[in-house]
């Protein structure tokens, strides 16, 4: 009994300390999420209404061409952006890890884009990619009259422009994480590999990369969150155009929530995004927790 008391007291104070955060979590996150899901099943337009319409908003949503394009854009962007950022970031880190001169300068230069917001990134790349005064115009100015780089004004290619800008923005961050990972590799491994006469690329592929699982996971999670909330880049670069070719889900939600006074459809879209993310994250968390228990 005596031994139990202080333990109980410390548990109580822990709960007390956590209660503000817990309240915020429950009320703001869980509460608002539940409210969003509820509104998505009503006929709400400009103001929330309580007319229950079941899944009608979802029918309208999935029949909506703009939503379909938004979702497929997110998939294309997500896959290409993550792979390209990871590969490029890793290669940059390897290059810098060769103990090059002016390492500090280069590291800052590569990390610099990350210090900019997506809005600025989008604007800069909008100008660079604009065919009448960007890269294409410069190429033609040098005398290459047929030089063509007008991806941003073509519907089929505009999404790759978002990828280019996104990778430019994120690769530096990936590099910083990877560099930290590379520096954490034991020097003795390199010495042993040199004694065995392994070529450096073989050491990277077979030994170093498998040892850097944590770095890759960190970078991947950070990149994945910026994929899901992709919004400002599309707004600043193309505003969803040409046409509706570079629309993304978050922009669909924002536009319908405010400009279009259609919160029923907007919350249905937001709920669909949540379910998708949950469907990816939940199994992962489950596996992690089982692994932890097993270990």
């Amino acid at each position: 009994m005596l031994a139990l008391r202080p333990r109980l007291a410390s548990k109580l104070s822990a709960w007390l300390a956590l209660s503000p955060a817990t309240t915020i979590l429950v009320v703001v996150y869980v509460g608002c999420t539940a409210w969003t899901v509820w509104i998505s099943m009503t006929a709400s337009r400009m103001l929330p209404s309580s007319t229950f319409v079941g899944l009608r908003q979802y029918d309208a949503l999935f029949a909506n061409e703009r939503w379909q394009i938004s979702v497929s854009n997110l998939v294309v962007f997500g896959v290409l952006f993550m792979i390209a950022s990871l590969v490029l970031g890793f290669l940059l880190a390897v290059a810098i890890d060769q103990r090059v001169r002016a390492e500090n300068v280069l590291r800052s230069v590569f990390l610099y884009p990350f210090s900019m917001s997506f809005i600025v990134t989008g604007l800069v790349w909008q100008w660079l990619l604009n065919p009448t005064y960007g890269i294409q115009a410069v190429g033609r100015g040098f005398g290459f009259e047929t030089f063509r780089f007008d991806w941003i004004v073509r519907q089929e290619t505009v999404i790759y422009c978002l990828v280019i800008a996104g990778v430019w923005h994120a690769a530096g961050l990936v590099m910083a994480i990877m560099l930290a990972g590379l520096r954490g590799i034991d020097e003795d491994i390199w010495k042993a590999a040199r004694v065995d006469g392994l070529p450096p690329w073989r050491v990277y592929v077979s030994i170093v990369i498998p040892m850097m699982g944590a770095s890759f996971a960190t970078a991947a999670v950070l990149l994945a969150t910026s994929v899901v909330r992709l919004y400002d880049l599309s707004v600043a670069m193309t505003n969803g155009g040409p046409g509706i070719a570079s629309e993304v889900p978050a922009k669909f939600v924002m536009d319908h929530l405010f400009e279009r006074q259609n919160i029923g459809l907007a919350t249905a879209a937001a709920t669909s995004m949540l379910i998708t993310v949950a469907a990816v994250v939940a199994p992962w968390i489950y596996i992690q927790s089982r692994r932890r228990r097993a270990a």
Binding site: R45, G241, P242, G243, I244, H256
Partner: peptide
Amino acid sequence: TPPAVTGAVEDVISSFWNT
């Protein structure tokens, strides 16, 4: 037309112009 319809029409026109 209410904003929701104006927006839906806008998407259709925009996609026609660009396709």
